[in-house]
Design a protein around this nucleic acid. Sequence first.
DNA 1: AAACTTACTGCATAAACGGGTAGTTTGGGT
DNA 2: ACCCAAACTACCCGTTTATGCAGTAAGTTT
Lengths: 216, 216
Amino acid sequence: MKTETPIKTAFVEDDEVTRECLTLLIGGTDGYVCVGSFPSVEDALKQGFTATPDVLLLDIHLPGMLGSEAVRLFSEKYPRLQILMLTVYAEQDKIFESICNGACGYLLKKTPPARLLESIREAHEGGAPMTPEIARKVLRLFQKTARPEETDEKLTPHELRLLSLLAQGTSYRDAAEQFRVSINTIRYHIRNIYDKLHVHSKSEAVSKAIRLRLIS
Amino acid sequence: MKTETPIKTAFVEDDEVTRECLTLLIGGTDGYVCVGSFPSVEDALKQGFTATPDVLLLDIHLPGMLGSEAVRLFSEKYPRLQILMLTVYAEQDKIFESICNGACGYLLKKTPPARLLESIREAHEGGAPMTPEIARKVLRLFQKTARPEETDEKLTPHELRLLSLLAQGTSYRDAAEQFRVSINTIRYHIRNIYDKLHVHSKSEAVSKAIRLRLIS
DNA sequence: AAACTTACTGCATAAACGGGTAGTTTGGGT
DNA sequence: ACCCAAACTACCCGTTTATGCAGTAAGTTT
């Protein structure tokens, strides 16, 4: 039934036993093919893959360059590559770093083989496979970094656009030109913005606006 | 085998057919029990649940109060409640809103019943069930909002402290007083900051600093 | 029609800012 | 002792802001 081309998978994993297991698992399963298996990032880069991989499994704790750092490297080198982190512990900061660098999933090594294969496919098909604990941690991080904190008075769309300009360092004069209005109108709006945000300067307004997620 | 107490589940879902299906599914499955089933948030609040639910399935698009808004309400009323969003479309902003408000998962209605039951259990056990597309969207959002984006030149601790003051709207003069230095020294530092950040104004510096997560 | 809001414009002025140039002081290195 | 880089101080000057006061035109409300 599997007439589709197999998913080209590669690993970077320092533990030899695990690496062997993975190679066997992938090599022995229909629909998957192993195009590389290395004990370190450096080796992978030096020797190269036998074919451009679709999915890369990256261990976090590696001798030499860490997996969490290598994510960016690989994803820049192979833009269509999906990278899955594979590690023993669910460390908050490593998860964070990996995801920010562009990893698309994060699995624990205790993941059973069937689930692992499924996750590789899921990653290849645009999903973001994670173990439940990790998914929850990601959400927590997310909730922490992104809390709306409503303002008492809402800014108009116009005011928000102006605020964005200010955040970019635009002067009143330039903003006036962009909006095709007089500089005095800009002043007028700025005053309203300041009133609503209870601030008294551009920088304060910008910082408050960003914090309240009104802009950016 | 299921000697554990069943997972108390409730729904808010305006489509009557879907609601019936859910009630039947949950009611008819071992290990799950339905403690409420309402067509709107308002009804749920008015009538109350037959028991404090463990997991709540919330539709996004509801008549009256939207599910994405109700998340906070429910999670404040029942702090140990796990809330799963259940909807037809994966809308970026609704996902964002729901998660920020405290939802722990986000499923599409097309999710097959078996997977749905599994997700409820997963939510109850501290996981964060999401469909693959949604998981990927969450990661994307995450990458967008939290990108370190290294600066080419690092700011000194002193410069960072000054930058925080600027973000609060402090003037050069006041900053000088706080640091017990002359206003010219403040200027000196500001210039260095601007050079390092490649900006030309306070507001631009503040916005860049916040975005780069140098401050706040 | 009178009263009121909204968005906008104009002017004035003190204060704050940005950027150039230049001269101390200080604590390491070698 | 010498050099070097850093942190700091100083002055200048044109530009930009913050903010008060005042006025107009279009659209609502009553």
